[in-house]
């Protein structure tokens, strides 16, 4: 008995001492400053006006490079676009059709149940045209990207033109505070007043960044408003039911306990 215990202890010691290596220093991750968003928290809801402005920014600017494959034009009813507006929007996009009788590629006007048109025929083509890195699809960007909305906003407003004096200058790369290594191939997308919002909101860079961030968060989680609302009702129902069930249980068990 004693012998086995000692053996075990020895084996354990040998086994345990093996991995004593030092931990490599991990670079400090960039934590963007927190912004206040309507859609934050367990009860947050989207502001449809902001979503519609944000879609405008996406459609005019981002979508020239970034696809949003998972969405269909019809899905935009979720940001409050009317059926007619969606039909017109889809119709204005030329979508690749099937090859014609002689095998030539064709295109046709989009329809509401088409997926968003991708700016490049394939990821390879995108990478080839964009200097080696394909612009990522934005369907779920806001949920995949750490710090989602806060980072998107910080990034979109974080370009420095001209770059700080001590920053390395690489042709075809732009300085941004919020990317690894501070250099990115994507040029600054937003400029003051480069679009005009139909609702009259001044289209500053900050405003556009906020709006398109909201839109990207919506695209990544389109049912958030409904989810929070339904959840609230379900919780209320369950609490009511719980009260009833506890009363019933107590009443039943009184027969056992109260003697």
């Amino acid at each position: 008995m004693m012998k086995t215990t000692r053996l075990l202890a020895l084996a354990a010691a040998a086994f345990l001492s093996a991995p004593l290596t030092t931990l490599a220093a991990v670079p400090e991750p960039l934590v963007p400053p927190h912004q206040k968003w309507d859609f934050d928290g367990p009860f947050g809801q989207f502001d449809q006006k902001a979503l519609q402005r944000g879609f405008m920014v996406y459609d005019r600017i981002c979508s020239t490079c970034h696809g949003m494959k998972a969405l269909t034009y019809n899905d935009l009813s979720g940001i409050g676009m009317s059926e007619q507006a969606i039909l017109d929007l889809a119709h204005s996009k030329m979508i690749a059709g099937p090859p014609d009788v002689s095998g030539q590629p064709t295109s046709r006007p989009g329809r509401p149940d088409d997926h968003f048109r991708s700016p490049f025929p394939s990821d390879e083509a995108a990478a080839a045209m964009m200097g080696g890195v394909a612009p990522p699809d934005q369907s779920r960007l806001a949920v995949i990207q750490p710090h989602g909305a806060d980072w998107l906003y910080a990034f979109l407003t974080g370009y420095k033109m001209p770059p700080p004096a001590d920053a390395p200058v690489v042709p075809g790369k732009f300085y941004n505070d919020w990317v690894d290594g501070h250099l990115i191939g994507m040029p600054p997308p937003l400029m003051n007043g480069m679009i005009q919002y139909p609702d009259g909101t001044p289209a500053t860079v900050e405003q556009q960044a906020r709006d398109v961030t909201s839109f990207l968060v919506w695209a990544a989680d389109p049912h958030r408003t409904a989810r929070h609302r339904t959840g609230l009702w379900v919780v209320l129902y369950l609490i009511g039911l719980l009260v009833l069930a506890i009363a019933w249980k107590k009443k039943t068990w009184k027969r056992v306990k109260s003697q």
Binding site: Y237, L238, G240, L241, L244, A245, A247, W248, K251, T252
Partner: peptide, 13 residues
């Protein structure tokens, strides 16, 4: 009665 109301509540859910 309590049992019936609770059961109905569960069924509705």
């Amino acid at each position: 009665f309590l049992g019936m109301v609770t059961t109905a509540g569960v069924a509705a859910g």
